[in-house]
Amino acid sequence: MGESIFWLPAASEQGEQVDHLFFLLLAVSAIVTIVVFVLLVTFAVRYRHGSKAKRGKLPNLMRRELEIGWTAATAFLFLFIFWWVSSAQLEGYSPPPDALEIHVTAKQWMFKTQQPSGVREINELHLPVDTPVRLVMASEDVIHSFWVPAFRFKRDILPGRVTQGWFTPDKTGTFHLFCAEFCGTNHSEMTGRIIVMSQADYAEWTAGQPQGDDLGKEGAKLFVAKGCSGCHAPSSKVHAPNLAGLFGRKIPLADGSIVTADERYIRDSILQPRREIAAGYPPIMPSFQGVVSEEDLTRLLAYIRSIGKETP
């Protein structure tokens, strides 16, 4: 990493776009700066006190037109930049559906990552090149932030909320991972490495790791162990929703609104079940706050997601 101390090449598709916008803005700023400095210096020299430069009348009209002119020009320039950078941002807002799903759990002062294959790492993350990666993140304590400067990617990791983000690494190599949000004593020690490998190397690396169960299978065990299946299994006598086929569907709520059953909704329903009650069900589910850890939640989510494709 870091052949040059003066530049950090972007190593993701999104990063290259950010660099384009950055250089566009840099050019605009350079032009404005040069114009301002040239005017300041020219005026300062030309109109220094006692100089022989001509100082005639200033027609009032020209003054007002100048003012209106540069106000309009500045406003137009800024709106143009806004439009350009924002449209770039919106294009890349949603991750592709087949993105590699990586779960990240942050705590003081480490990142724990988990691959779809179940492989777990601490302060490290191995990724295949040219593959979209979707991060699903939560924090166990304070706010952290997942920053990979080479990817020009950053997203805060919050306690009590799932945050997501995605990027597509397009260069192999090892890159810095930093915690960007101040999180206490060893904030500056909360760093790691992102190792981007060719797809073949990645497959080999995955095969060489001690195989845990994948997340969904671990989640299925927890689903029974924590007693979820007592109510949510199809055979249960309790009037609770069957979770097969649930993930990603639109759910009508008791208050008349509609939510999408995404990670956020399912997570909140486990921790604070009374907050958003599905229409037609009695509010009888107990809260699992403090009963399931952040990592267990990740597994349960993965399980509910995995049965989301089944038809109920």
């Binding site: 950010v18 950055f22 605009v28 930049i81 806004f82 950078v85 941002q89 020009r152 990617f153 949000e181």
Partner: peptide
């Protein structure tokens, strides 16, 4: 102030701010 203000255009731009915020 001109330099400071122009750098504000970078931080107002969403994709660039995502990268440079907290840096």
């Amino acid at each position: 102030f001109t330099t400071g203000g122009l750098s504000g255009l970078f931080t107002a731009s969403l994709p660039i701010d995502v990268h440079v915020t907290d840096s």
